[in-house]
Simulated scan of single mutants.
Amino acid sequence: MNPHHTTHSPAYERIKANPKFQRLARQRAILAWSLSALVLAIYYLFIMLVAFVPGWLHLPLYEGSNLSRGIPLGAAIIIFSWLLTAWYVRHANTRFDALSAEILEENLA
């Protein structure tokens, strides 16, 4: 038997052909690619700041501060990424999981 050839059950084929499943897959892909692009753009912009205006990042956060602007900016980027991940997980666990359960219920019942 060819290891790349698998037989799919009729339920699998019904789910794959279901318009709700196709919409779910498309929505998940669009959201995942959009969030990935957003995070990559933010990190890229930070690297551009480091490369082209490092002096601005070295300036003190406020008058008399020993903390430079770069530290809170870098921390904000990391925290933003965590929050975006948490939002995606919550969104996936509510909307996507509910739609997945609905699709399974329709096609396996």
Rank of each mutant, 00 (worst) to 15 (best):
S100I: 03
E63C: 05
V50L: 11
I103A: 01
F46N: 03
R26S: 06
I42M: 14
S100Q: 13
H4G: 14
I79Q: 04
P54C: 00
N2S: 10
Y44E: 05
A51C: 04
Y12A: 08
F96H: 08
L59R: 13
I103D: 03
A109L: 07
E106S: 01
Y44D: 07
Q27S: 13
I71F: 15
I103C: 03
F96E: 15
A41L: 12
L59A: 14
V50T: 08
I79W: 00
A17L: 02
A109N: 10
H58A: 14
A76S: 15
G64C: 02
N93Y: 01
R69V: 00
I79R: 05
F21K: 04
V89R: 13
A37W: 09
L31H: 15
E106N: 01
L40T: 09
N66Q: 12
V39P: 02
I47S: 10
N66W: 10
S81E: 05
A51E: 09
A92V: 04
H4P: 06
R28S: 13
Y43W: 15
L57K: 05
K16W: 14
R14V: 00
G70A: 06
V89D: 11
A17I: 01
A76G: 14
E102H: 12
M48N: 08
G55W: 00
L108Y: 12
S34E: 07
S36I: 07
G64F: 00
